[in-house]
């Protein structure tokens, strides 16, 4: 049987799925990137390999997405390297045909995608600021001494969520310290944080966009039931979360790879190879481009980052 592999390498987590010809997920893996996308990808590939061991699957297409899509795509020989917006839209559409709004909050990106009749009509991503994303929540959780995974359930215990200024992570932190010293309950503060993530998202990323239901909430933060509840309260609409919500980007890139005519069998042996990346500054003109060189077992595989031909590196 044929299979297609999709890998979504985000700033915080790395996700991979294998689908069959009917776009059904037959294997999946979800781990932390921990600042090392190459190691993370090797780990997810090993996870996937174990899951497929007793099944007779031949992977003939690989797609990558996420912020490390280019690096990993080069590494594992992907036939589709696509941005997160497109991958998420396609992945979600394959499961929820009539979705109108996708709310996605990840580690450092947050985005909104609006669809109509299965076509993206509008989208937005956070611009320069990462306030209200997953990294905001995890940095606050450290301050409160609570696991970020427990945030949602703790938030639900609160009866009177506290107002926390979440416009900016730095100011939110000082507001938070103030509230703790004033003697506010922990669950009220956590519920306040979840609420502020939702309102911050709606005021920044989703500003001026008409949010129509069905609304699907995805990304790592969608696992936080407190934020989901906050969205439901503010929007007064039902919010759908999917147990596979975190895999939508990977699913989308697997489908994109399936749609690509150029196919090549993929071997898990790749995770035994030794990959290295090297950043070097090109000094051939005043631009000083930073060039990334990827090496496989000591041999140059690809290089990018140069703005002009001066910085081209033969591979």
């Amino acid at each position: 049987m044929n299979g297609y592999l999709g890998v979504d390498i985000g700033s915080i987590s790395t996700k991979a799925v294998v689908i069959d010809d009917n776009k059904k997920i037959i294997a999946s893996s979800y781990i932390w990137t921990e600042g090392n996308p190459i190691k993370a990808v090797k780990k997810v590939l090993n996870n996937i390999k174990e899951q497929l061991e007793d099944k007779n699957i031949c992977i003939i297409g690989v797609g990558t997405t996420g912020s490390a899509r280019k690096l990993i795509g080069t590494m594992i020989g992907a036939n589709s390297i696509k941005n997160e917006i497109t991958a998420h839209a396609i992945g979600t559409l394959s499961l929820h045909k009539n979705v109108r709004t996708i709310i996605e909050i990840g580690g450092q990106d947050s985005k909104i995608i609006l669809l109509e009749d299965g076509i993206v009509t509008d989208y937005a991503m956070n611009t320069l600021c990462a306030a209200g994303t997953g990294s905001f929540l995890s940095s606050q959780s450290k301050r409160l001494g609570v696991n970020v995974e427990d945030f949602g359930t703790i938030a639900l215990e609160s009866k009177h969520p506290t107002n926390v200024a979440a416009r900016c992570t730095v100011f939110a932190e000082s507001d938070l310290v103030h509230k703790i010293q004033m003697g506010y309950k922990k669950e009220d503060i956590i519920a306040g944080l979840c609420y502020s993530v939702a309102s911050n998202y709606l005021n920044n990323v989703a500003k001026g966009k008409k949010i129509k239901s069905p609304i699907i909430f995805q990304g790592g933060v969608s696992k936080n039931i407190g934020v989901k509840k906050a969205f439901e309260q503010i929007l007064k609409e039902k919010i759908i979360t999917d147990e596979n919500g975190h895999l939508m980007g990977a699913l989308g890139s697997a489908i994109l790879s399936m749609n690509n005519k150029l196919k090549e069998p993929f071997s898990f042996k790749i995770s035994d190879s030794n990959f290295e990346t090297n950043a070097q500054e090109c000094n051939k003109c005043p631009n000083h481009c930073e060039i990334i060189i990827v090496k496989k077992d000591g041999k140059k595989l690809d290089a990018w980052g140069n703005r002009c031909d001066n910085g081209k590196i033969a591979t």
Binding site: S67, N83, T86, I90, T121, D122, L128
Partner: peptide, 30 residues
Amino acid sequence: LLTFEELSSDVAVITRLESFIDMIEGCVYA
């Protein structure tokens, strides 16, 4: 909307452009 600051890499810009073109071409959604 694209806001330029003193970014040293174009990656964030390219991600947004790529998805914008995907959207206006509207043809990748099989």
